[in-house]
Design a protein around this nucleic acid. Structure first.
Lengths: 340, 340
DNA sequence: TTGAAAGCGCTAACAC
DNA sequence: GTGTTAGCGCTTTCAA
């Protein structure tokens, strides 16, 4: 009933092996034969059975994407969509696995779960890319992996990143150029190394400008709308204290939460308070006011990660770190920040 | 190197077939032997190879989740997370495929892409569950599928839904009980049948209460934050006209956009305008003000869909419609709506 | 450059 | 109840 490689072979008048060679773009097939085979494949609408393929070869054509379960933000969505699109282009499939570092035994649970899948490699976005128990187990198993923006240990594996420090530095300078002197900062997830880089970039830019930062104006956050809201609520509830004139949130979801909190406390953005974010999430563009942010090429980043995993040289273990890439960011000026 | 069924068999002193029986929970294995096998499996940390399994049996242990590519909302995220969790519990894996109905040839593209995967079934959330070309092709192929909230053709396949009409009716009554008479409505995606049901529920409740609805107060929407914002912006820009005192948005993302638009036009929610949503998305709870909404048990719904697909009776084609389920909703009162 | 044979790890069908 | 025998549809030897 379903078309197999044999059907294609007999119809094309060649052996199954030759069809296999064409399928896998191997050499040593005469152009003429290759064309015939390709034509028959199209005629019969033949699709190789992934299971037979995976069983007899070392490759599964499956890539894993591990995501941090409790915090599924717009960022995670962009990551997944980017990975999905690139995988499709390459004829691969994506296996998404949610993983909660806070829950004991999850690493084993997830890795056992995908053990039978023989994944060709996995992509680790933040904050999983710095979750040591996971990295250790993955290395132990010998599974190729690429980290997205880990912010540390560049030699450990291939990675794709932006220059978090420089980007945060640039954004802070932008605020300073707008005339702001009293600037607050909402941090990202503590275990997320990129969050520390952004904070460092912020502090460095402030220091270079000779500006001090109130300890109370550096607020904890979890990259979620909720945590941004809470940070703002906390900040504005300290009624007696002076307020910053601008706040740099380590991502857009938190910036949106911050705007909501400001609203609750009767503050106008950007009239009473400038708020800037990071990531250029879709909501940052369409909220009111639209949020000034730093655009990260998330889709390109994860696509690059897929490319590395698919690259036979990387899979063979050729010095992973040399595959690492750093992609450019872009400051997007919108209406949530204005000159003082 | 990797542990196979034979290793388990020889170590347990049984045949591979017996191990296979234990693995698949088949009958006709003495409890005593079953225990031994189970113990050896644990000792060796044996994980069956999915490819070998899929190749020799009719099942792939793979479930597809098709999602509407351009509109990835909090709803889609909840759907995916719910599906992922249930699949993991059952030892299945989820294959997510983005699909854009607006792009010519996508149906073929996606179905060709997963053809080699021999999916055990697919889940179709809105609005794909009413995308006729897709349904036709899936039925043509003979792939089992379950629709989530299609709002039409209940006999066509198994489905999981809530009573959209009753839920929207209830929400509208809530607004009326709060004293509102001038109520607007922001619609969902036109091709999304559930959106039509919600609208119908709203109109019915208004009619029953003897209340009229301004044609200008029924606004188009796409279930996105952006579209909710635009709807509000349009509504409030019509300066001369009177405004409604309450607006029912067909989902939370749009309600959030509506609140943002109100803010832009200097309107206070709920002071000047009550806004209610639908879905109980996480952001609805944590935004300011928190949004009154109708909670949909999204995770339970998609889990039920996975269960149906895994159920051998359904897969065997036993009258799919009898598997259909309707789950209860719950009105969640928060601060975005208040008594007039 | 091509093909024949063997086998990947599992389960279906059939014996016993 | 349990084991044996054949494949599932591919890719990998290795020979021609």
């Amino acid at each position: 009933m379903t078309v197999t490689i044999k059907d294609v072979a007999s119809r094309a008048g060649v052996s199954a092996k030759t069809v296999s060679r064409v399928l896998n773009n191997e050499t040593h097939v005469r152009p003429h034969l290759r064309e015939t085979v390709l034509r028959v494949i199209a005629e019969l609408n033949y699709k190789p059975n992934m299971f037979a393929r995976g069983l007899s070869s070392a490759r599964s054509y499956l890539i894993g994407l591990f995501i941090h379960d409790p915090y599924w933000s717009g960022y995670a969505t962009d990551i997944q969509l980017g990975a999905l699109r690139r995988c499709r282009e390459l004829g691969y499939h994506l296996v998404v696995e949610p993983l909660d570092p806070g829950e004991p035994g999850t690493v084993d649970h997830v890795l056992d779960g995908v053990a039978g899948l023989r994944l060709d490699g996995v992509i680790l976005p933040p904050p999983l890319c710095t979750f040591e128990p996971l990295l250790a187990r993955i290395e132990d198993i010998g599974l190729p992996y690429v980290r997205i923006s880990p912010g540390e240990a560049p030699e450990r594996s291939a990675l794709v990143e932006i220059d978090e420090f420089a980007a945060a530095h640039q954004m802070t300078c932008h605020l300073i150029e707008l005339g702001h002197r009293d600037i607050g900062f909402v941090e990202g997830i503590p275990t997320h190394a990129a969050a520390a880089r952004r904070r460092a970039g912020f502090l460095a830019a402030m220091a270079e400008a000779g500006l001090g930062v109130e300890a109370d104006w550096i607020l904890p956050g979890l990259f979620t709308f909720q945590s941004g809201f809470i940070a703002g609520d906390t900040l504005f509830s300290a009624a007696s204290a002076p307020r910053p004139s601008a706040i740099f949130c380590a991502n857009d979801d938190m910036a949106l939460g911050m705007v909501s909190a400001a609203r609750k406390h009767g503050l106008d953005v950007p009239g009473d308070l400038s708020v800037v974010g990071f990531d250029d999430a879709p909501a940052a563009r369409f909220s009111w006011p639209p949020v000034t942010t730093m655009r990260q090429p998330v889709s390109d980043m994860v696509a690059a990660a897929v490319d590395m995993l698919v690259d036979p040289r990387y899979r063979r273990g050729e010095d992973g770190a040399t595959f690492s890439r750093q992609l450019p960011v872009e400051l997007v000026r919108r209406q949530s920040a204005r000159a003082l």
